[in-house]
Deep mutational scan, measured.
Amino acid sequence: EKTLKIVADSEEEAEALAKELAEKYNLEVTIERNPEEEGKYVITIKIKP
């Protein structure tokens, strides 16, 4: 299993990107607040072998 993390500037941007990735590529995608940067969100994508 591989994990890729993407940082987005807004929750709306994160949700839109996560939804597109999940639907288009059938990936497991989660969104959470970035504890290191206020106002940023981390999109985590898990790629199963």
Rank of each mutant, 00 (worst) to 15 (best):
E1Y: 01
K2G: 11
K2E: 12
K2M: 08
T3E: 09
T3W: 14
L4I: 15
L4D: 03
L4R: 07
K5G: 03
K5Q: 13
I6N: 01
I6P: 00
I6F: 14
V7L: 12
A8V: 15
D9W: 11
D9H: 15
S10Q: 01
S10L: 01
S10F: 02
E11Y: 15
E11V: 13
E11R: 15
E11N: 05
E11L: 15
E11C: 08
E11A: 10
E12H: 07
E12Y: 07
E13W: 09
E13F: 06
E13M: 09
E13R: 05
A14T: 01
A14F: 01
E15M: 15
A16R: 14
L17I: 15
L17N: 01
L17Q: 02
L17D: 00
A18T: 02
A18S: 04
A18M: 05
K19H: 07
K19T: 07
K19W: 04
K19V: 06
K19R: 11
E20H: 13
L21R: 00
L21H: 02
A22C: 08
A22M: 14
E23A: 08
E23T: 07
E23D: 11
E23S: 10
E23L: 10
K24G: 03
K24P: 01
Y25A: 02
Y25Q: 03
Y25G: 08
Y25H: 08
N26S: 07
N26V: 03
N26M: 06
N26F: 08
L27P: 01
L27Q: 09
E28L: 09
E28V: 12
E28S: 08
V29Q: 00
T30W: 10
T30C: 07
T30K: 07
I31F: 06
I31P: 00
E32W: 03
E32P: 00
E32I: 05
E32L: 06
R33Y: 08
R33K: 14
R33A: 14
R33N: 08
R33P: 14
R33W: 06
R33C: 05
N34I: 14
P35K: 10
P35S: 11
P35Q: 10
E36C: 10
E36G: 15
E36F: 11
E36V: 11
E36D: 15
E37K: 09
E37G: 10
E38V: 04
E38Q: 06
E38T: 07
G39N: 08
G39P: 06
V42D: 05
V42T: 07
I43A: 01
I43Q: 00
T44K: 05
T44H: 08
I45C: 05
I45F: 02
I45T: 02
I45V: 13
I45M: 02
I45A: 08
K46G: 04
K46H: 14
K46W: 04
K46I: 15
K46V: 13
K46S: 12
I47H: 05
I47R: 04
K48I: 12
K48Q: 11
K48H: 13
P49M: 09
